[in-house]
């Protein structure tokens, strides 16, 4: 009995350590390869050069065009997901009868379970041609339609987590507002949303992280042309798409071209790490407010 317990305990510990080690290993590879990349390319060029052409003969290593692509698609996705997600969250927690909520919430979460390749394909084959009716200048590859699809993909992340946050607001706060003659909408908007603010912000940050890291949709529908632009109608390339493009290509493994993907990966990693820390901090503050 005692030995059995010990084995289980050690086994669990082993699994936990394995996860941590794997993560550390990945970070180590990222760091080592990035360091060797920055021995050949100046960091200043990397963050200020406005062209990204490591695969051409006239090489430029400016990350900005890739970040522009990532930023633009993410921005469009957030523009879709946050307002709609928040409206859905408010509807589900404040207006919908309990039964309806218990059906709608899981139904929405299915959206997040759709394989992203489906969204990408849908963006390329249906959404872009449809949008071309509205914007005739829209290219076959662009950031608008994958951005929109990505917004729908991360919608349940925002709506579900925001709804959780709204639901967790103490009931007596809501009653306090109603007791002063406030309407349902006033209560939801002026008391519940501010009270759940940190939780909602966390959901938005997670959604941003998810959108920044999303690969398939943008790789399929946004194009592979690094371009420093804020125009949603033209082809771009996101950081993630670039990594896919190079890792699936046939560049030699010791070359500087190959190392670029680690430098790009490292930049993405730093970005999401910062976002994660913000959300962690917000969560902590949130818990303090209601204790």
């Amino acid at each position: 009995m005692n030995i059995k317990e010990k084995i289980i305990e050690k086994g669990l510990l082993f699994c936990a350590l394995l996860t941590i080690l794997t993560t550390l290993g990945i970070i180590a590879v990222l760091v080592i390869q990035s360091v060797s990349f920055f021995k050949e390319v100046s960091f200043l060029d990397f963050i200020t050069d406005t062209e990204w052409t490591p695969l051409f003969s006239n090489k430029h290593y400016g990350i900005l065009p890739l970040f522009a692509g990532t930023f633009l698609t993410t921005f469009i996705a957030i523009l879709v997901a946050v307002p709609i997600g928040l409206i859905i969250a408010i509807y589900l927690s404040e207006y919908a009868p309990k039964k309806l909520r218990n059906i709608l919430k899981p139904a929405l979460e299915v959206l997040a379970a759709v394989p992203t390749v489906v969204y990408g394909y849908f963006a390329l084959v249906y959404v872009t041609p449809f949008l071309q009716n509205i914007f005739p200048s829209l290219s076959g590859f662009n950031s608008l339609s994958p951005g929109l699809m990505m917004g729908i993909m991360i919608l349940p992340l925002v709506s579900s987590l925001s709804e959780d946050a709204l639901y967790a607001v103490p009931k007596f706060l809501k009653e306090g507002s109603f007791a002063l003659g406030a309407t349902k909408f006033q209560t939801a908007w002026k008391v519940m949303v501010p009270a759940a603010f940190s939780g909602i912000a966390v959901s938005v940050i997670l959604a941003i992280s998810r959108a920044i890291g999303e690969t398939m949709i943008v790789a399929i529908a946004a194009g592979q042309q690094p371009r420093l632009t804020m125009n949603p109608l033209v082809p771009v390339e996101t950081a993630t798409t670039y990594i896919v493009q190079v890792s699936m290509g046939d560049v030699p493994h010791d070359s500087i071209e190959y190392k670029t993907i680690f430098a790009v990966g490292m930049s993405l990693f730093v970005f999401t790490l910062v976002l994660n820390n913000i959300s962690f901090w917000l969560k902590k503050r949130y818990q303090e407010t209601y204790n």
Partner: peptide, 19 residues
């Protein structure tokens, strides 16, 4: 809503708004 304006209520636990 009009009714509740004329009838004030104070709750067991202080419940100030996050403002």
């Amino acid at each position: 809503n009009e009714l509740r304006k004329t009838i004030g209520m104070v709750f067991q636990k202080p419940n100030p708004f996050p403002k």
